[in-house]
Design a protein around this nucleic acid. Structure first.
Length: 846
DNA sequence: GCAAGGTC
C-alpha cells in the first residue's frame, strides 16, 4: 500500500485536519522531536487504497542568516552585508530537529500533500518542507505527479474536504516573494543595526543601550511614538471661553446646559455673548427630541482587538497577553489565539460554545436567558481565511486559572457572549433652549435594554438623570449663566492600544509580530511604558528618530514597508522577477545606507593641524569637520560644496585648506577650517575664508590675491579665484559679484605693482601660445584689469570704457580703491567709489 | 550581539 505524507503548519492544525479527513478514526503518536504528532489512517487517494500520515511543522523550518564569518562584527564592514556577504538557510529551531523529523516520517512515502497555511509564508514553508522531504521519498514512476497543495480558507469539514478533493500545486512565485522579503529584512536590518550600534557605542554612553537596532517594522513603530512626543512638545495651549447655563426645572432641581457654539477663542466675543444672555430671566424651549439609538454588539474577537483590550482595559502588555493566550490555548481553554478573522464560520457551533458557559458562576444568568430566548445572529465580520475568531473552548473558574490567565479568559468569554447578544438600546433625549439670542442644549440617555452591555459592563451606557418632560414653547427660569475660561490641552503619549491600531492601519507587522515589535522598542530602551500603558520615548529613541528624519525620513516613515511590500507582491503575482526586485531594492537601501553613514559619521577629508590625522566631513547640516582624535568640531559654510584643496596647509596653524564652492557657475574660495572658526587677526571675524584673510604673505590670502574694491558693495574686495582657470574668475569676498575674465590663460598672478590710475593690483597673465589673444606672438601681459586697454577687451569692459576715468581724458580720481593690500589699513572701511563708473561696470558682472 | 516571519 502506498503512503501519502501530509504536512500542516502547526501541530494543532494537523490534528484537526486529520480528524476531519479520517472521520475520527485515526491513530496518533508523537514524533521524534516531541513537539509534532503523526496521525495515521487509511483511505483512498488517486483511486487506490493508501495509508495517510498527517503531521506538521512548527512554522518556518528554515531561517536566513549570513555565513558564519560574516557574523563577526569587528571583521566585517556593515556595507558588505548589502551584496558581498553570502547568506545561507539554517534550521530555524535546531532543538526541534525539524529536517530530521520530516525525513524520518517522509522516507518511503509516495505522495506529499501540503496543508500549510494559505498565505505567502505558508507557501514558502511548502518549499522548505519539500527541500527536506523530496530526497527521501520514493521516486515517481513515469512522470506521475507526487506533490500536491491543499487550499482551504477555514478549518471546517466542508472546506477541508473540498480542499482534499481539488488539490493543486504549491505556488513558487509566492514562496519567492517571501525569500526576497527575508533577504531584504536581513541585509538591511543587520547593516543598519551593526553600523548604528558600533557608531553610537561610547558616543552616547548615558543613553544606556548596548544594541541600537534598526528594522523595517520596529523603526516605524518607534517613529509613531516619537511623532506623538513631538506633537506634545510643540503644542501651544490656547485659551478659550465657554458659556454654561443652568436652568431650574423644579424647586430643587436644575439642569446644566451646553452652549451650542461650544467655545470661542476670543474673550471679548465670549463676554459679549455672556452680556446678551446674562440679563435673561427665562430659557425658552425651542425643540425637544427623543431618538432610539443602539450601541452595536462587538464583532467576533481577533488577535489585535484582544491585544488592544488587554492593554487598555486589563493593563497587560501585548507580549504578555499573547503568552497568556497561548497558554490558555494549549490548555484547551480558548481557541487558537492568532487570527485576523472577525467572522464566525457558517457551521460554527455558537450554541454549543454558549452552553458550556451556562453554569458559570459569573454569567450563568445571562447565558441561560440567551439560550432560552434565542441567541442573536453575530454581526458580519471579516473573514481573513486563517482561523476562526478567538472563543472559549470550555468553562473555567477564577480559582482554576488565577491571575492574568483568568482575567484574559474572562474577557474572551464575555466578548464571545456579547457577540451573540443583542445590541444595547437606549433613548437619547435632547432639549434645545434659547436664552436671549443664544442656543443651549441638554441631552440625556436612558437605557431601554442593556443587551450585550450586561455581560460587558464596562461598555454600558452611563446612568444619567432623566430629562424633564417639556415641549416647545415652555419656559424655565434661568439659574445662572457663567463664562468659563479654559485651555486646550496637549495630546497625551500614545497608548499601546493606539499604537497597535496605527501599526495595523499601516501594515506594520502581522497579528503575530505586532507584540514582538512593541516589545523590541521597549527592550532596546527606545520607549518606556508609563502609567495607563502609554509609551513615552526615551532620549535615545528621540535622538534616533530625529536623526533619521534629518537625514532620510523614509528610514522611519511607515510608507517604506508598504512600498517594499508592493514590489514583493509583484513577485508573488509573477509580474516581476525575483532577482531584479531584490537587486534593485538592495541597491536603493545600499545608497540610503552610505548616505546615512556619510551624514552622521562623515568621511575623511582633510588633516587636522594639531594631530595631523584626517578629520571627517559631515555633510548633514550643520555641515562641519570633526577631528575624532582631538574631539573638536569645525563648522563650515552651510551651502555649497566642500573639497580638499590640493593638500595645501595654512601657514598659521598647519590645518589643510578646503575649497568651498557654490557651484560651477558661482564662486569659490579656499578656507582654513581652524581660522574659519578662530579668526587669526583682529580685523577678521568668524566665518571668513582665505579670501578675507589679512595674512601679509600667505599665497592664498586676500593680501596676495586681492585686486581692487568691489564694483557693487561697500566693503568688498575683488579677489582672484586661484582655482578657476582656465576660465578665470574674480569674485568679491563680501557679496555675490563674480567677474569672468581671461579665457585660455594658463596662469594668472596678482602682481605687487598697482595701477597708476586706479590703484588696483596689476595682473600678470600667461596665455597659451596657440590661443593667445594678445597682439603679435605675445603670450604674456601685465596690466590693470580695469584700465589696461589690452585687458579691457578680455574682461569685456568695452562699454564701461567710456565711463572710465582714463577715457574721459582727465586724470583718474585717486579714490584709493583699496586692494586690501598694505594700502588700506586694517579695520578701516573702504572709501566710497565713484558712482557713475561703477554702475556701468556692474552691468558686466554676474 | 543584528531583521521579520512562522510557531512551541
Amino acid at each position: 500500500m502506498k503512503t501519502v505524507l501530509m504536512v500542516a503548519e502547526k501541530p494543532s492544525l494537523a490534528q484537526s485536519i486529520a480528524k476531519i479527513l479520517s472521520r475520527g478514526s485515526l491513530s496518533s503518536h508523537k514524533g521524534l522531536n516531541g513537539a509534532c504528532s503523526v496521525h495515521e489512517y487509511t483511505g483512498t487517494f488517486a483511486g487506490q487504497p493508501v495509508r495517510f500520515k498527517m503531521t506538521s511543522v512548527c512554522g518556518h523550518v528554515m531561517t536566513l542568516d549570513f555565513l558564519g564569518k560574516y557574523n563577526k562584527w569587528d571583521k566585517v564592514d556593515p556595507a558588505e552585508l548589502f551584496s558581498q556577504a553570502p547568506t545561507e538557510k539554517k534550521e530555524a529551531n535546531p532543538k526541534l530537529n525539524m529536517v530530521k523529523f520530516l525525513q524520518v516520517e517522509g522516507r518511503g512515502c509516495d505522495y506529499i500533500v501540503l496543508w500549510l497555511d494559505c498565505d505567502k509564508e505558508g507557501e514558502n514553508i511548502c518549499f522548505e518542507v519539500l527541500d527536506a522531504v523530496l530526497p527521501v521519498m520514493n521516486k515517481a514512476h513515469g512522470g506521475e505527479k507526487t506533490v500536491f497543495r491543499a487550499r482551504f480558507s477555514s478549518i471546517t469539514d466542508t472546506d477541508i474536504c473540498n480542499a482534499m478533493a481539488c488539490l493543486g500545486e504549491p505556488d513558487h512565485n509566492e514562496a519567492l516573494s517571501v525569500d526576497a522579503r527575508q533577504e531584504l529584512d536581513l541585509r538591511i536590518g543587520c547593516a543598519f543595526t551593526r553600523f548604528q550600534t558600533k557608531y553610537f557605542q561610547g558616543k552616547y554612553g548615558d543613553l544606556d543601550s548596548s544594541l541600537i537596532s534598526f528594522g523595517p517594522c520596529q523603526t516605524p513603530t518607534l517613529g509613531f511614538c516619537v511623532e506623538r512626543h513631538d506633537k506634545i512638545q510643540s503644542f501651544k495651549p490656547e485659551t478659550y471661553w465657554v458659556l454654561q447655563a443652568k436652568v431650574n426645572t423644579d424647586k430643587d432641581r436644575s439642569l446644566l446646559l451646553d452652549w451650542d457654539r461650544v467655545r470661542v477663542f476670543d474673550r471679548e466675543i465670549a463676554q459679549m455673548f455672556l452680556n446678551m444672555t446674562k440679563l435673561e430671566k427665562e430659557a425658552q424651549v425651542e425643540a425637544t427630541s427623543r431618538k432610539e439609538k443602539a450601541k452595536q454588539r462587538p464583532l467576533a474577537l481577533n488577535t489585535v482587538e484582544m491585544l488592544r483590550v488587554a492593554s487598555s482595559s486589563l493593563g497587560m502588555g501585548p507580549q504578555h497577553a499573547m503568552q497568556t493566550a497561548e497558554r490558555l490555548y494549549t490548555q484547551g481553554y480558548i481557541s487558537y489565539p492568532r487570527t485576523e478573522t472577525t467572522h464566525y464560520p457558517e457551521n460554527f457551533d455558537l450554541k454549543g460554545s454558549l452552553r458550556q458557559q451556562a453554569n458559570h458562576p459569573y454569567w450563568a444568568d445571562t447565558v441561560k436567558r440567551l439560550l432560552a430566548e434565542g441567541i442573536n445572529r453575530p454581526r458580519k465580520g471579516h473573514d481573513a481565511g486563517d482561523h476562526p475568531p478567538i472563543t472559549p473552548m470550555k468553562s473555567a473558574t477564577e480559582a482554576e486559572l488565577g491571575g492574568d490567565a483568568w482575567r484574559l479568559y474572562e474577557y474572551i468569554t464575555r466578548h464571545f457572549i456579547a457577540t451573540v447578544s443583542h445590541d444595547c438600546k437606549y433613548l437619547q433625549s435632547t432639549i434645545s433652549f434659547r436664552i436671549g439670542p443664544e442656543l443651549f442644549t441638554c441631552s440625556g440617555k436612558t437605557v431601554l435594554s442593556p443587551g450585550f452591555t450586561e455581560v460587558m459592563p464596562w461598555q454600558s451606557v452611563p446612568l444619567e438623570e432623566s430629562l424633564p418632560t417639556c415641549q416647545r414653547g415652555d419656559a424655565f427660569p434661568v439659574g445662572e449663566v457663567k463664562m468659563l475660561e479654559k485651555q486646550t490641552n496637549p495630546p497625551d503619549y500614545l497608548t499601546e492600544a493606539e499604537l497597535i491600531t496605527l501599526m495595523e492601519k499601516h501594515g506594520i507587522g502581522t497579528d503575530a509580530s505586532i507584540p514582538v515589535h512593541i516589545n523590541n522598542i521597549c527592550q532596546r530602551n527606545y520607549v518606556t511604558v508609563e502609567s495607563g500603558r502609554r509609551l513615552k520615548p526615551t532620549n535615545l529613541g528621540i535622538v534616533l528618530v530625529h536623526g533619521y528624519y534629518k537625514i532620510d525620513a523614509e528610514l522611519v516613515l511607515p510608507t517604506i514597508r508598504s512600498a517594499v511590500e508592493k514590489q514583493l507582491n509583484l513577485i508573488a503575482q509573477g509580474k516581476a522577477d525575483y532577482r531584479q526586485v531584490l537587486g534593485h531594492t538592495l541597491d536603493v537601501f545600499k545608497r540610503k545606507f552610505h548616505y546615512f553613514v556619510d551624514s552622521i559619521a562623515g568621511k575623511p577629508l582633510s588633516r587636522c593641524g594639531k594631530c595631523h590625522r584626517f578629520m571627517k566631513y559631515i555633510q548633514a547640516k550643520p555641515s562641519r569637520l570633526h577631528c575624532s582624535h582631538c574631539d573638536e568640531t569645525y563648522t563650515l559654510p552651510q551651502n555649497g560644496t566642500i573639497k580638499l584643496y590640493k593638500e595645501l596647509r595654512c601657514p598659521l596653524d598647519d590645518f589643510e585648506l578646503v575649497l568651498w564652492s557654490s557651484g560651477s557657475r558661482g564662486k569659490s574660495y579656499p578656507l582654513c577650517p581652524y581660522c574659519y572658526n578662530h579668526p587669526p587677526f583682529r580685523d577678521m571675524k568668524k566665518g571668513m575664508g582665505c579670501n578675507e584673510c589679512t595674512h601679509p604673505s600667505c599665497q592664498h590670502s586676500l593680501s596676495m590675491l586681492g585686486i581692487g574694491q568691489c564694483v557693487e558693495c561697500e566693503s568688498g574686495v575683488l579677489v582672484l579665484d586661484p582655482t578657476s582657470g582656465p576660465k578665470w574668475k574674480v569674485a568679491c569676498n563680501k557679496c555675490n559679484v563674480v567677474a569672468h575674465c581671461f579665457e585660455n590663460a594658463h596662469r594668472v598672478r596678482v602682481s605687487a605693482d598697482t595701477c597708476s590710475v586706479c590703484e588696483a593690483a596689476l595682473l600678470d597673465v600667461d596665455f597659451n601660445k596657440a590661443k593667445s589673444p594678445l597682439p603679435g606672438d605675445e603670450t604674456q601681459h601685465m596690466g590693470c584689469v580695469f584700465c589696461d586697454p589690452v585687458f579691457q577687451e578680455l574682461v569685456e569692459l568695452k562699454h564701461a570704457a567710456s565711463c572710465h576715468p582714463m577715457h574721459r581724458g582727465g586724470p583718474g580720481r585717486r579714490q584709493g580703491r583699496g586692494r586690501g593690500r598694505a594700502r588700506r589699513p586694517p579695520g578701516k572701511p573702504n572709501p566710497r567709489r565713484p558712482k557713475d563708473k561703477m554702475s556701468a561696470l556692474a552691468a558686466y558682472f554676474v
